[in-house]
Write a protein that binds this DNA or RNA. Sequence first.
DNA 1: ACTTTGGTTCGGAACTAACCGAACTAAAAG
DNA 2: CTTTTAGTTCGGTTAGTTCCGAACCAAAGT
Lengths: 157, 157
Amino acid sequence: MENRQKVFIEKIGVRTEKMGYSPLSGRILGALLLADPPHMTFDHICTYLSASKSSISNNLNILMRDGVNMIEYFTVPGDRKRYFRISLQNWSKHLKDMPQEFEYSNELLSDIIEYRTENKLESKFTTDLEKILSFYNFMLERLPSLINEWEQQQLKK
Amino acid sequence: MENRQKVFIEKIGVRTEKMGYSPLSGRILGALLLADPPHMTFDHICTYLSASKSSISNNLNILMRDGVNMIEYFTVPGDRKRYFRISLQNWSKHLKDMPQEFEYSNELLSDIIEYRTENKLESKFTTDLEKILSFYNFMLERLPSLINEWEQQQLKK
DNA sequence: ACTTTGGTTCGGAACTAACCGAACTAAAAG
DNA sequence: CTTTTAGTTCGGTTAGTTCCGAACCAAAGT
């Protein structure tokens, strides 16, 4: 493997690891992002990343799991191989689902505040938490329309 | 420790772990979020979470590290103990620094696109990536003013 | 029917991270 | 100067993860 690619892929990998994936998963994503054409066979990935079939198999499946869907595969008639590629559709969807992320933090923080209020705990601190919550809520309220705005802008092009 | 709190704290912990902290760090944050008054001594945390002094020490220090600053401590004259609490100030700041997060993904994606263009790799895929990048850029552009808007709204209250 | 191909599953080795107890340090109290 | 208190550092254990090779399976080719 060429060196510039290698460095790149590791860089992508590091970023991906922070999203909670294994190093190899990250490298797979990296490889697919740099690939030309932008898809690779199972075998190709193995040799390209010099990783074992088992590891590749496991990590591909993780990346294709429900709720992850970072990659997908397609087949061509008269060819048994699978061709794996980044699922850009799901990537965009993931971005658009970003508010969902806020929703979780939001819920938890609400619960904490509720707990503190119910149990009459120190209220200055609770008030401060409420301020943070209000920020989450603000974002949660605004993000969808912001995303929508972007979509409209795209359509016009 | 009371049971409702325990469940709660674990729940907070799980969420925090996803941000890349250890379980114990998460539990410390949880404990401090529920505490009344909203601060605890070193010893208090140890017994409350039934964890060792060493672990607590390490994790407190991690949570106080530069670039993290999730918690802070204060002291009272004539008392050698430290009182630890959530640093709400830094928490808010962290939120406002959210665009920074986008910046990193953005940069990496730009690099990938640049690589693909330079090396004349399949351009349909590259174009699709550019679309995603444009979303990142859009967010990066809009988030600051959105955050600013919220701040103005807060001041008026 | 036998082989080849594409991929999965299983069991274990190597590594990593979290946590603990014990020994230690620094500073205040007596 | 001795003791106590508050917290840190060190070394080892345990738990969990990642990855590999080998065995395996299912479908297609011969």
